[in-house]
Design a protein around this nucleic acid. Structure first.
Lengths: 102, 102
DNA sequence: AGCTTTTATCGTATAAAAACGATAAAGTGC
DNA sequence: GCACTTTATCGTTTTTATACGATAAAAGCT
């Protein structure tokens, strides 16, 4: 196949960079950093405790948790009627590795 | 003054966390990661070269550069009619320090 | 089964980000 | 001064994110 168009030598995004952008995007909101801080401080805690600590509504906190969970920065497990959240250390390590490449 | 309202013990965001969120937000877009990659690879280069490398328009690249410049992740200096951009190593180091606190 | 507690989701409104083409601004060279 | 190159900004449209209250869903208790 031909590949002679000079205009086509655009940089393509590698998978690790896509991963880095995704993680950074998730961290790019003050509320989500606050949530991580609460989880770090308490090691692990149920959703309700996070809500109590933050100046935003329960539904909004829930959405932020969803974002953090989507990129596996945190994980939650059912604990009776509540859900216990904690940080996923692997994702944090992964983030550090990716940042190190900058 | 009184401070007896239990509901008021909300976590307040510290300045470093605000800084972290801002840096991450700037990195939270694939195009901006791509721009950093180009700058890392070439050490420094003029805006036009970045535009040639990316699959997005000149005006959009310019906007992304503005975002990166706003949080000092990159810096640009006038070089004749063009502008030469390069990474600001201090900001990258700062980012690593902030990430290390997670 | 009914009630309570806890969290996720829905619906919606508002705000912010992203993208583009067109145009302006600033520098070079003739 | 005029054309040319290079980059920033403007105006606009489209998309995505954020936030909230209301409601649903899931689990435990009586």
């Amino acid at each position: 196949m031909k590949c002679d168009d000079a205009k086509l030598k655009k940089t393509s995004l590698v998978e690790t960079d896509r991963e880095l952008a995704k993680l950074c995007k998730a961290l790019g909101h003050e509320a989500r950093i606050m949530i991580l801080r609460v989880l770090i401080e308490r090691n692990a805690c149920i959703c309700g405790e996070i809500v109590d600590e933050l100046p935003i509504s329960q539904s909004t906190v829930s959405q932020h948790l969803k974002v953090l969970k989507a990129c596996e920065l945190i994980q939650g497990e059912v604990q009776g009627p509540a859900i216990c959240y904690c940080i996923n250390p692997k994702a944090i390590k992964r983030l550090r590795v990716l940042i190190a490449s900058l």
